[in-house]
């Protein structure tokens, strides 16, 4: 299994680059990775969905989809697209140290 190392942080990833061990994630690391995916400044609005994703996936065992973020987490999908443009679900899963979301909706 490949291992990524950046600024002293080491974490295992799958072939695509997603985390395989959520325990290897930290907020400091998320800030570094955020820069790599084009998020220059992590604001409170950025952190809130990531925290929800980690809490929710700890319970369910799967990465929540955007629809679940809206239905269960109470987040506005429009806001999530604005915060994490392009591929919001994948970007957020990555920055939350979780596997790629697999749900269709």
């Amino acid at each position: 299994m490949p291992t990524n190392t950046i600024d002293g942080h080491t974490f295992a990833v799958n072939d695509e680059g997603f985390f395989t061990n959520r325990e290897e994630w930290s907020e400091d690391l998320a800030v570094i990775l955020a820069d790599l995916v084009g998020i220059e400044q992590m604001t409170e609005a950025h952190w809130a969905p990531l925290r929800f994703m980690r809490e929710d996936s700890a319970k369910t065992g799967v990465t929540p989809t955007l629809r679940r973020m809206q239905a269960v987490g109470g987040f506005d999908v429009k806001d999530l697209f604005a915060l994490y443009p392009g591929k919001p679900a994948k970007k957020m899963a990555y920055l939350a140290g979780l596997p790629k979301p697999v749900g269709c909706v």
Partner: peptide, 8 residues
Amino acid sequence: GFIIPDFG
């Protein structure tokens, strides 16, 4: 060697 998912 850093692997990062394709984000677009």
